[in-house]
Design a protein around this nucleic acid. Sequence first.
DNA 1: GAGTTTGAAACT
DNA 2: CAGTTTCAAACTC
Length: 271
Amino acid sequence: MRMATKINKDFRKGCKCKKSKCVKLYCDCFAGEFYCGEDCSCTECFNRVEYEDTVEVAREKIKVRDPLAFDPKIHPVVQSTRSHNEGGNQVMPIVGKHRKGCTCKNSMCFQLYCECYKANVGCSVGCRCEGCKNGFGIKGEYNVYNAPQTMRAINEKPNDCENTKLELTRLEFSPPESGYLQSSTPLTSHGNDTSRTESYFNPSPISAISGVIGTSTREFDIGPLNQQSYTYVDQSMDNQLTPGEINEMLDWNPNETLIYTTVNNTTQYIK
DNA sequence: GAGTTTGAAACT
DNA sequence: CAGTTTCAAACTC
Ligand SMILES: [Zn+2]
Ligand SMILES: [Zn+2]
Ligand SMILES: [Zn+2]
Ligand SMILES: [Zn+2]
Ligand SMILES: [Zn+2]
Ligand SMILES: [Zn+2]
């Protein structure tokens, strides 16, 4: 099964390293396991194919110190799900968490100095930032960007929709404090096109007022064992209200239980 | 472009 | 681990 390919728009702009010789993690090219290219204006660069042995030694040395050094820094957070076929489930990571978290002291996490902000993700429990003002999610604040990792998707038929093609995907998770949140999105059938754009509903109360916050375009593939896989072509966040602003508008208290369903594009609060 | 600020990476 | 230094990018002017 092929893994999803991330397309980073700012990908590979070229480094300007002077002292690291581009064989330390200071160099973004090296850190991303890329050789330096034409766009780089580095000095005494060893991060080139002709020095591949040197590069390999340098990589291994760093891996001894930290085996995860070259792993992705941003881990996806499952925040939306939709059924695609009988019993099938596709989950889409839109947002993520920084693996280590940041340690910002003076930039308040709203400048590109902050690795979380730079990666378009909110600060999470792993961050040790001070005075966090990360617009994607403030550390400790309960919002979709700080979504807990314990999430599961449950597909079921709504009570009075037995004879329809409607199916509900219920996303459940336990908020950090207490409470219980449910979100439902109606099943939609899909055609034979291999590339398409889908909209996803946020599992938090954000969907109650703004609906779509993220879109993705992806290409489907049928791999060995008839497994469905896909490659991301593009992802974007449309609604740029911060989670904090949205939660404030909703007067949403994470300690309260909120249950609602969305059927035929109508949101109904159960209580 | 030069100089400053910043926080991750590297080092002790 | 913690404290310090090094480093390249982000930022400012
Ligand atoms: Zn470099
Ligand atoms: Zn480079
Ligand atoms: Zn280089
Ligand atoms: Zn930060
Ligand atoms: Zn952070
Ligand atoms: Zn922060």
